[in-house]
Every structure is written in structure tokens, then in C-alpha cells.
Write a protein that binds this DNA or RNA. Structure first.
Length: 554
RNA sequence: AGACCCAUGGUGUAAUGGUAGCACUUCGGUUUUUGGUACCGCCAGUCAAGGUUCGAGUCCUUGUGGGUCUACCA
């Protein structure tokens, strides 16, 4: 079958057919180091690196670090780590817009000399006033017609620090009556006497995004500069700088940003979740950040597959979170090691199993992967099963344990439930069962058909661990889409639940960070980095699909 | 409302003037030592009105609906 191509691939197909840039494709991923990467960035990373790979091109990593007041090295490091973890490699092409500050400055001087840029002494309020609005054309600044010499001298002064912050800016001289607000003499440079994370105190002026970005693209020979839709109105300005300065003609192409139900990707709002203590940090497993998803137990492959499946287009979208979950489960199903863990234990005494005896039964690590091998699981007279795997008075389609029924224990024997014991409060305290010796997994000659298969742990060998289960952080699919209402009103109060004494099979004591597990019938889990040797903490990445609970709701 | 952009099942995305397809979700079924997985199936779509054409989701016009833009942020 023919693979369908998105509109960006089609543009590049055409460029290559036309021999543009000699068939070369160079893209870039340009994060600003002022926050952590999130799922939306992941889409952009996959797109940029994916396109380059497809067309035998390369992708640069370039930090867009033109605003020293918000940016920091801490973010640079986390961003690099996240991109690598996702599985992408910028090789030796790690760049910073700040690397180009000198060139940018020269370009600005060139524009001044061409009479296409000027120093403006207007206050920001005056500039806003002059700018007009979408229906009212702007008016020229009184400083617009300064001579080239004066502009050169003033700009030099801005650079050397003789003027105060906010007292002057350098603006492009374009058209104050343009219907496109971005063309109404946009600011190119502002004075900021703030130390930069890389250039220190070398500069008193810093370039604005529109100028810095397109010149950086041009300088790196970026053939296709992919960005999100909100920069569409900036493209005429992007092209204007390139044309006036006669530099490499990078082409900006805009695509729709990723939106996922029940998730937010606004950096500002993510920061509020962190600062107001609603989550434990940027890498809280409930966060849509790459680091949060990593800690939660997402695999890089599942995120890449998701990015591929959501597609690339120009219309606004709202992706069903179930697509993300589908990609996650698909990958985890293929790679996760199956183990048994009982969340809410109910004791079972196997009355016909010899006291003091135990046996170690083989268990496949992953039935989906014949190379995954197997391990031994201890079995004995007393085991624990899941409390909700037993019912005194079961409904018709209940396949699990009940008095008088046969049920299979995974990797072990078929059990017959003879009786249940209640405690003083009427709660089921324990089960008395008999096992069928000839029903051993792999060599079952009993002829008994058991409908359900339960997971279990040996009472004697079980280890205790902590399990943290997560639910969606918001109860509303678009928490920040309610205008007047604050998105925090929609925070799910039950997004985290902790169970302290989960009983697991002994093999899990050797779990390492980065191992993916499936707790049989329960879901996928990973070790949390805050674990210690004597206190293991597992994060529930996601549950298994559960058609039983769905059935019950009806 | 000035400019720009967008509009295909519930959701996302194809079809580039010639049979509206794929995926997720929902629902139903088969298989199953995970009520998992796998497999099969059902329901369901071109924003509206005109025009061009043998033929329009696709081209044109006009509407309608939605998005973006008026930081010395990116």
C-alpha cells in the first residue's frame, strides 16, 4: 500500500524534484531554554528529525536563547537529555542563537546602512499608541527619519551600554500601515543589562525572535524551517529580513501544534502546576513533559509512534488521549516483563498442599517475545490473591473465584474454592481451597476447564513494595478552554493514589530503573527514581485494557 | 470586524478533477492459562449555497463556523 504523505513532505518532494538547494534538506529543532520539553515539543522533534532522516538530510539542535531574563543552562541540559532519550541525535551540530550575536549585530548595522532600520526613543506605551490596531493603521514614530549616521551612533551606544534599559530600541523600517501588525516596524533589538547564560555580560542588547530566528536559520542553511501556526503571520517578516539582507533563503513552513485531550502544554500553565505544588515538579509522572512521561514509564518508541500517528496538517486538532494510550500499550505489550503483584491481598490457604513444602514454577517473562526467557516463581500452601478476584455472591459472568468453583492460578495449578472465612465485621478474611495436583501449568492432565486465570503471590516469599497509581491530571478535556474559569478548577483531586503494601513476587527485588514491567492483569509499571534498595516504589504507567470493568458499569 | 490561515465519521489523517480510504474510540463477535494480546465485523463523514466541468471533497464565488496577530516573549 502507498504511504500517504503530509503537506510538508509534499512540499519537499517538489523542492527536490525542482533541484532546489541541490536536493539538500536541513531542518532544525529550536527550543528556548526557559522550560522543560513537553509532548507538543516531542511532535516537533519527531517531525524535524524525521523529515531530515527521510530525505537524507540533517537536523541541527539550536537553542533560541535571545532572552537572558528567562533562560538558563539548567533547561539546556534537560532539553538535551530529553531529545536524546526520545532517540534523536544532532551529532556535532549543537548551536545557540547566542553564537550568532556578532553576526546578528553586523546584519543589523547593514540594515541601518540601507536605511531599513532605525533607533527609536519612544517608550513602549508610545510605541503601542503609534502602532494602531488591526483596524487602525499605525503612525510613524517621530524618530523614524533619523539619519543613517545618527542611527549607527545610537545603536553603537545601545550596545556599549550608554543607554538605560527601555530607553531605546532598534526597529526595522517597513510599513506602519501594513494590515499585518508584524510589519509595522517591528523591534529588532532591545536593551537588557542582564547576564546571559552563555555570553555573560558581553552584551547590553539582545535581538528579538523574528530577527534572530530567521537569520540563524539562514546562517545554518536551514532549507525548511518548520514551526507552528502562530508564526504564520510572521512569515512575511521572516522573508523580508532574508530578502533585504540577501542571505540564504530558508523557507518557513507552519503546521498545527499538537493538542491532546486532558493535557495542557502551555509552559506558563505547566509552571503554575509546579510552583503551586499541584504536582511534585516538572518530572511529576502526571505531567505532559517528556521528563514526566519518562518517569511515568512511557517508552520513547511509543511517543515516536504517537507523533507519527497524529499526522501533520494545518487545521487545529484535539487528539483523543486514547490514541496515546494505544501507542503506549502496544509498545509495552511487546517489551514489558510479566510479573505478578497483588495490590489488595486476600489470603488463600491450600488445605491439601503439604505444610512446609514449596516449589518453584517456571513463568514466561513475556509471551509476546519468545526470546524473553523465563524465571521461577515460588508457590506454597499459603498464597495471596487479589481481593476483588473473589466474590461470595458472584454475578452470572464472573469468571473468578467463588465458593464451589474452579479457577486457574497463572503458571501454577487449578484451585477449587471450598470455603471462605469471615472476620468479625463480615469481611472475607481468608479462603480455603484445594488444588488439583495434575493441573500444573504446562502439564495439565486434569481435564478440568477453568474459566478465569488469576495472578497470585506466595505468602512466604512475597516482598512489599509501594505502588503509585496515576489518573489524568484534569477532569476536563480542555481545562484551559473555559475562558473566564481558571484551568486549576479542573484539576482531578484523585490523580494520584498510593498503595503502601503491595505484595510482589521475589524477582521484582532486582528491578532496575528503566525496566518495563507488566504486573499481570493490572497494568504496566516502572521503578520510580526515588526508590531505595529497601523501599521500592513503582509507578503505574497505565492499566491494561479492562473489558470486565467496562461491562460492569452497564 | 483589517490581514492571514483552516473546515472530510466521535477524534485524527488520506484521496492533488475520476470507486471517499486508513488509524484511534464506541459497539458486536472469534481465539486465549492475562476479562490482556491477536483476529473479524457493525455504526458513522466531505460546513452551506451557487458556479465551472462529462465528472467536484478537490477548482471559482459568496456565506457560515473556527484559529492567529495589536510583548522591548518565543
Amino acid at each position: 500500500m502507498e504511504e500517504s504523505r503530509n503537506f510538508i513532505q509534499q512540499i519537499i518532494d517538489e523542492d527536490i524534484a525542482n533541484g532546489k538547494h541541490g536536493g539538500k534538506v536541513i531542518t532544525r529543532f529550536p527550543p528556548e531554554p526557559n522550560g522543560y520539553l513537553h509532548i507538543g515539543h516531542a511532535k516537533s522533534i519527531c517531525l524535524n528529525f524525521g523529515i531530515a532522516e527521510e530525505f537524507n538530510g540533517i537536523t541541527n539542535l539550536r537553542f533560541d536563547d535571545t532572552n537572558p531574563t528567562t533562560e538558563d543552562t539548567e533547561y539546556v541540559e534537560s532539553i538535551k537529555k530529553d531529545i536524546q532519550w526520545l532517540g534523536f541525535d544532532w551529532e556535532d551540530r549543537l548551536y545557540f542563537a547566542s553564537d550568532y550575536f556578532n553576526d546578528l549585530y553586523q546584519y543589523a548595522i547593514e540594515l541601518i546602512k540601507k536605511g531599513l532600520a532605525y533607533v527609536d526613543d519612544s517608550t513602549s506605551e508610545e510605541m503601542a499608541e503609534q502602532k494602531g490596531d488591526v483596524n487602525i493603521p499605525g503612525k510613524n514614530s517621530p524618530y523614524r527619519d533619523r539619519s543613517v549616521e545618527e542611527n549607527l551612533r545610537l545603536f553603537e551606544g545601545m550596545k556599549t551600554g550608554v543607554y538605560d534599559e527601555g530607553s531605546k530600541v532598534l526597529r526595522a523600517k517597513i510599513d506602519m500601515t501594513s494590515p499585518n501588525m508584524n510589519m509595522r516596524d517591528p523591534v529588532m533589538y532591545r536593551i537588557k543589562k542582564t547576564a546571559h547564560h552563555r555570553t555573560g555580560n558581553d552584551w547590553n542588547i539582545y535581538p528579538m525572535y523574528d530577527f534572530a530566528h530567521c537569520m540563524s536559520d539562514a546562517r545554518e542553511g536551514i532549507t525548511h524551517s518548520l514551526c507552528t501556526l502562530e508564526f504564520e503571520n510572521h512569515r512575511p517578516l521572516y522573508d523580508w529580513f532574508i530578502e533585504q539582507l540577501g542571505v540564504f533563503p530558508s523557507r518557513q513552513i507552519e503546521f498545527a501544534r499538537l493538542n491532546v485531550d486532558y493535557m495542557i502544554t502551555s509552559k506558563r500553565k505547566l509552571l503554575r502546576l509546579v510552583e503551586e505544588g499541584i504536582v511534585s515538579g516538572w518530572d511529576d509522572p502526571r505531567m505532559p513533559t517528556i521528563s514526566g512521561m519518562r518517569r511515568r514509564g512511557f517508552t520513547p518508541a511509543s511517543i515516536r509512534e504517537f507523533a507519527k500517528k497524529v499526522g501533520v496538517a494545518k487545521r487545529d486538532n484535539a487528539i483523543d488521549i486514547s490514541l496515546l494510550e494505544f501507542c503506549l500499550r502496544a509498545d509495552l505489550n511487546a517489551i514489558a516483563t510479566r510479573v505478578m503483584a497483588v495490590m489488595d491481598p486476600l489470603k488463600v490457604v491450600i488445605t491439601n498442599y503439604p505444610e512446609g513444602e514449596e516449589e518453584w514454577l517456571p513463568a514466561d517473562n513475556n509471551p509476546e517475545d519468545e526470546n524473553a526467557g523465563s524465571r521461577l516463581v515460588p508457590f506454597g500452601r499459603e498464597i495471596f490473591i487479589e481481593r476483588d478476584d473473589f466474590m461470595i455472591d458472584p454475578p452470572k459472568k464472573y469468571f473468578r473465584m467463588a465458593k464451589g468453583r474452579h479457577t486457574r492460578l497463572k503458571n501454577a495449578y487449578i484451585l477449587h474454592c471450598d470455603d471462605y472465612i469471615l472476620d468479625e465485621s463480615g469481611e472475607v478474611k481468608e479462603l480455603h481451597c484445594t488444588y488439583v495436583p495434575e493441573s500444573k501449568s504446562g502439564s495439565d492432565t486434569s481435564g478440568i476447564k477453568a474459566k478465569g486465570t488469576l495472578h497470585w503471590v506466595s505468602a512466604l516469599h512475597a516482598q512489599k513494595v509501594e505502588v503509585r497509581s496515576y489518573d489524568r491530571l484534569f477532569m476536563d478535556p480542555v481545562p484551559d478552554g473555559h475562558g473566564d474559569r481558571d484551568f486549576l478548577e479542573f484539576v482531578n483531586p484523585d490523580s494520584l493514589s498510593i498503595v503502601e503494601n503491595v505484595l510482589v513476587e521475589p524477582a521484582l527485588a532486582k528491578a532496575k530503573l528503566g525496566d518495563y514491567f507488566q504486573f499481570f492483569r493490572k497494568g504496566y509499571f516502572v521503578l520510580d527514581p526515588s526508590s531505595s534498595d529497601d523501599h521500592l516504589i513503582f509507578n503505574r504507567t497505565i492499566t491494561l485494557k479492562d473489558s470486565w470493568s467496562k461491562m460492569q458499569k452497564k
